[in-house]
C-alpha cells in the first residue's frame, strides 16, 4: 500500500478539477454512466443547475440523506426532465442569473418517454445543455429494451431464443431527429475519449441556446462485460463504426472523429454477453452479425469516418496519453 504524506481528505479538497459528483454514490463497479456524468460535470464546472431524469444516475446518487451531487440538482420524474430544465432556465432568465442549466437523462428518458418534452425544450430555444447518457436499455428497471437498444441486442424484454435474435428493431437515430430541430449544436461522445467529451461539453455550454450531447456509456451489468472493461468496450464501439462520434450544427455535420483502422464489429460485440447469441452456429446469427457490420459500414460512409491518414484526433490518436497528463492546474 502506498504511504501518503498528507491525509486523503486534505488531498481530496485540493483536487485540481471541480467535479459535480462526489464519491459515495451507489453505482455498480465500473459504471459507464457515472463515469460519463463525472466527466460532464467536470467539464461544466460549478456554475450549473442540474435537472435529472429518473434512472440509474438518479437512484445511485441521491439515497436520502446522502447526495453525491455538489451542484444544485433536482429530480422530478422520468419523462419531464427537459420541461423541468426549461422551467429552471426560464426562472434563471427571469432572475437575471447566468448559471448554465444541464438536463441529464438516460436513453429511455430521452429516446422514448421523455422525447416529447425534449423536443419542446429544443423548439422553444431554452439555453439548456441536454445530456443523454446512452446505455442502450432501461437499466434501472433491469435491462429492458428501449428505442436506443441496437438491433440484435438481447435484453429482458427482447431476449434471444429459438425464434428471436434479441431486439428486432433498429436503434433510433436520435441525433438526426434532434438535429432536425435546426439545433445550434448536437454531438455524440463516449466515455472512451474523455478529452473529446470535455471539448464537446465546453462547446455545448458556450452555445447560447439548446444543445444536445449523446454520451455512449457502457453498462457492465446490462451489456454483460466486466466493470474493468467499460472504457475498452466503449472504445471498440467507436473503432468499429457502430458508435460514430460526430458534431452537428444546424443539422449539418461539422465534425467527426475519423476512424483510423476500423475494427470488425465482431470485436465490439464479442466483448458483451448481450450479443453472445450472434456468435451461434446458425445462418440467422451470421446474418444478423453481418447486419450489424453493415450498419457500422453505413455509418462510416454516411459520416465520412474513413480517415485518409493518421490524425491526432482520430480513433487511435484521440486517447493518446502524455507524460504529466494535464499537469496540476
Amino acid at each position: 500500500m502506498t504511504a501518503v504524506p498528507i491525509p486523503l481528505s486534505d488531498l481530496r479538497r485540493r483536487q485540481p478539477r471541480f467535479t459535480g459528483i462526489s464519491p459515495g454514490h451507489r453505482a455498480c463497479q465500473g459504471c459507464g454512466e457515472l463515469l460519463a456524468a463525472r466527466l460532464v460535470t467536470e467539464a461544466a464546472g460549478p456554475d450549473v443547475v442540474v435537472a435529472n431524469a429518473t434512472g440509474c444516475l438518479e437512484v445511485t446518487t441521491t439515497n436520502w440523506p446522502d447526495s453525491a451531487w455538489r451542484v444544485p440538482w433536482i429530480h422530478s420524474l422520468f419523462e419531464n426532465t427537459a420541461a423541468v430544465a426549461s422551467g429552471i432556465e426560464a426562472a434563471l432568465k427571469a432572475q437575471s442569473r447566468s448559471s448554465k442549466v444541464l438536463a441529464f437523462a438516460g436513453d429511455g428518458g430521452t429516446f422514448d418517454i421523455g422525447f416529447q418534452a425534449l423536443s419542446g425544450m429544443i423548439e422553444r430555444g431554452h439555453n439548456v445543455l441536454y445530456v443523454c447518457y446512452d446505455n442502450e436499455a432501461y437499466m434501472n428497471t433491469g435491462v429492458q429494451r428501449s428505442g436506443s437498444t441496437p438491433v440484435g441486442a438481447a435484453t429482458t424484454t427482447s431476449p434471444a431464443g429459438k425464434e428471436r435474435l434479441g431486439k428486432r428493431h433498429l436503434k433510433k437515430d436520435i441525433l438526426s431527429i434532434i438535429a432536425a430541430h435546426y439545433m445550434p449544436y448536437a454531438a455524440t461522445a463516449t466515455v472512451a475519449y474523455p478529452a473529446d467529451l470535455r471539448h464537446k461539453v465546453r462547446r455545448a455550454i458556450e452555445v447560447e441556446g439548446p444543445t444536445f450531447l449523446l454520451v455512449h456509456s457502457p453498462c457492465p451489468q446490462g451489456w454483460g462485460h466486466d466493470g474493468s472493461r467499460t472504457v475498452e468496450v466503449a472504445r471498440l464501439g467507436v473503432q468499429s463504426g457502430l458508435v460514430p462520434l460526430i458534431e452537428l450544427e444546424r443539422g449539418a455535420v461539422t465534425g467527426v472523429m475519423p476512424i483510423r483502422e476500423p475494427r470488425p464489429v465482431a470485436d465490439y460485440l464479442k466483448a458483451q454477453a448481450r450479443f453472445r447469441h450472434l456468435f451461434a452456429d446458425s445462418a440467422e446469427a451470421a446474418r444478423e452479425l453481418q447486419h450489424l457490420q453493415a450498419l457500422a459500414e453505413h455509418n462510416i460512409e454516411r459520416y465520412g469516418l474513413s480517415a485518409p491518414g493518421p490524425e491526432a484526433h482520430d480513433s487511435e490518436g484521440a486517447d493518446t496519453v502524455r507524460r504529466g497528463g494535464n499537469q496540476w492546474a
Binding site: S22, P23, G24, T61, W64, P65, S67, A68, W69, R70
Partner: peptide, 10 residues
C-alpha cells in the same frame, strides 16, 4: 439532501 453528503457512505 445536502450537497456531497454521500461522502459519508464508504
Amino acid at each position: 439532501a445536502q450537497a456531497g453528503a454521500a461522502m459519508a457512505y464508504h
